[in-house]
């Protein structure tokens, strides 16, 4: 019985961690949809966003104030990226844009450290990394309050963004651009506005992910690499699929925890770091287009 309870605990913790991966992967998917580019700057955006958030709090802004000022700042980052990087490169190849996002990543990392310094900050969200008593009482499961909060916030944000893209005019515009940017432009969908929206959404995602991860591990440069955890998620889910990103994030989260706990000891532990990539490679062999990767529609 306790064996089973323990297994459930592991899976639940994994799923909750997985919602964060889903969320970060969603940031990538949105940008991929709009510009068919893998945004290498996403990790730097996470770092930049949460470091700025902590910085604003240190300057004396209240939590909510710092949160919204940072969102505005990420909107500004999106605006500058669109105007200074993407717009001039609009007619260049996707490879060129890819290189530009790598450059953007370095710029954001540099800016963040120049503005706020290099030392590791502590971020206290007022939520402890302790099991929640009422869950223990009712089910016997030990679930961390921080894990649960992160999971719920990520799930809420994912739901919100999905609805936005399914049911709003902007969302229709984005889906049109994702299918055929030229045709979208020919009927008057302004590509630059769509880009701005997508980069701002990615900025919000980056901030929330940074806050959740930063609260556990401290706000530090390592957050840049944590965002790359989204890569195996994208391989499994498909680069252009929102449901794919969500499900694959959960799969990675749960399986990485399960593998760590049950198989990890045979490898001397610490397999969380690379197990998702092995999983992704197997997946790639089985379904190269990803779990929900949009099938390419071709007609003769």
């Amino acid at each position: 019985m306790t064996e089973i309870l323990f297994f459930i605990e592991v899976v639940v913790a994994g799923l909750l961690a997985g919602t964060m991966y889903s969320l970060v992967a969603l940031g990538f998917v949105l940008i991929y949809k709009a510009s068919a580019t893998f945004n290498f700057a996403q990790g730097a955006m996470v770092f930049f966003a949460v470091l700025s958030f902590v910085g604003f709090m240190e300057l004396g802004l209240p939590f909510i104030g710092a949160f919204f000022v940072t969102i505005l700042l990420m909107g500004l980052v999106g605006f500058c990226t669109e105007r200074l990087v993407l717009e001039p490169l609009l007619n260049e190849s996707e490879d060129t844009v890819l290189m530009a996002t790598i450059g953007l990543g370095f710029v954001l990392e540099g800016l963040a450290q120049a503005a706020w310094g290099v030392e590791v900050r502590r971020l206290d969200l007022g939520i402890g990394d302790f099991p929640i008593q009422w869950i223990i009482d009712s089910t016997g499961l030990f679930i961390s309050a921080l894990d649960l909060t992160a999971g719920v916030v990520a799930a809420g944000l994912i739901l919100g963004l999905s609805l936005l893209f399914r049911y709003t005019k902007m969302g229709l515009g984005l889906r049109a651009v994702a299918d055929d940017a030229g045709a979208a432009s020919s009927i008057g969908i302004p590509l630059n506005n769509i880009m701005l929206m997508v980069w701002t959404a990615a900025g919000v995602v980056a901030l929330v992910a940074g806050m959740m991860w930063g609260a556990r591990a401290g706000v530090q440069f390592a957050l840049v690499d944590l965002a790359l955890k989204a890569l195996p998620v994208l391989i499994i889910g498909g680069f252009s699929s929102i449901p794919g990103a969500i499900v694959a994030g959960l799969i990675i989260g749960a399986s990485e925890k399960v593998l760590e706990v049950y198989i990890g000891p045979y490898f001397g532990g610490g397999i969380e770091g690379w197990a998702p990539y092995v999983l992704a490679i197997f997946f790639l062999l089985w379904r190269p287009e990803g779990l929900f990767g949009e099938k390419i529609i071709r007609r003769v």
Partner: peptide, 13 residues
């Protein structure tokens, strides 16, 4: 408004 050569519908919509 231009209707581009090759129709160019949004296939997934």
């Amino acid at each position: 408004v231009q209707v581009l050569e090759g129709r160019r519908c949004f296939g997934h919509l």
